[in-house]
Design a protein around this nucleic acid. Structure first.
Length: 260
DNA sequence: CAGGATGTTGGGTC
DNA sequence: CGACCCAACATCCT
């Protein structure tokens, strides 16, 4: 699930359980997810170091360890899990930070999208993440308008383009556009002032509520609460939802509320 | 058994 | 360069 709000939940989780504590051991049950380092190298870099407060940029979580940074991307199925050190290992635990004082933080990922990187400088962090636009949480209406007017394509793939703005994934994009009543294929640069207002406030509201939950809430009055039902109806107007591909991704939208 | 799933990247095309 | 499409990555679920 990991989009901005999920990763924001992981950030809080990391801060709560791991920040301020010292790493006593690094275990790597599956090195496939170590993308630019090895079990040995990450152990050497992080062991004995005290973890700091993690930062989030878009879907990236970045945790400082007194010099090096641990960068995590969660792909589609990643998460963090706190466990007692003698707790049963989960099959998809790929990296484990054992912490002083007991307990350990685990990077768990069923599929092998995403991964863990080690960076030693700001420059290295940027080369790992690639170019990222401003975090979606940091945008105001003016900044959002400026980003969008320079774009040529449809609004949905633009919102999901991490180089334009960082953090919005498929579910968030559908939810935001549905709440704003904007058609996902609407040209990004032709929203006009009125729709831009609504888009800005919808994005703010969806992110605010979702961040609080650490995920998009599966509330029945939200699109995300019904989107998996094949016969889903629009929670607002009862019209049967459409499902098609926009920018190569499955898109759920209401043909009545989100007319072109 | 086939198809689809929340994400990113790299290749190719226009 | 920008926009778009597709395939690939690995695994589970319907």
């Amino acid at each position: 699930m990991p989009e901005l709000s999920d990763v924001e939940g992981f950030r809080r989780y990391f801060a709560r359980f791991a920040a301020g504590r010292r790493v006593t051991k690094v275990r790597v049950p599956d090195a496939d997810l170590l993308r630019d380092t090895s079990a040995q190298a990450i152990g050497r870099a992080v062991k004995g170091k005290r973890l700091g407060d993690p930062e989030r940029h878009g879907k990236w979580l970045m945790a400082p360890a007194e010099g090096p940074w641990i960068l995590m991307h969660f792909g589609m199925t990643g998460r963090l899990a706190w466990a007692q050190s003698d707790g049963e290992r989960h099959r998809h635990d790929r990296l484990i930070l054992v912490l002083a004082g007991g307990g350990e933080l685990r990077y768990r990922n069923m599929r092998k999208f995403g991964g863990v990187w080690l960076a030693r400088s700001e420059a290295e962090r940027e080369s790992v993440t690639g170019p990222l636009g401003p975090d979606a949480m940091d945008l105001d209406r003016g900044a959002l308008g400026e980003l969008l007017e320079r774009r040529r394509g449809a609004i949905k793939p633009t919102l999901m383009d991490q180089r334009v703005l960082a953090g919005i994934g498929n579910l968030l994009a559908d939810e935001i556009l549905w709440q704003a009543r904007i058609n996902p294929r609407h040209p990004a640069r032709e929203l006009g002032s009125r729709r831009l207002d609504v888009l800005d406030s919808s994005m703010r509201e969806v992110l605010r509520v979702s961040n609080r939950h650490g995920r998009i809430p599966r509330h029945e009055s939200w699109l995300t609460g019904v989107r998996d039902d094949p016969d889903a109806r629009c929670p607002r107007c009862g019209t049967r939802l459409r499902r098609d591909q926009v920018g190569g991704r499955t898109t759920r939208w209401c043909p009545r509320c989100q007319r072109r």
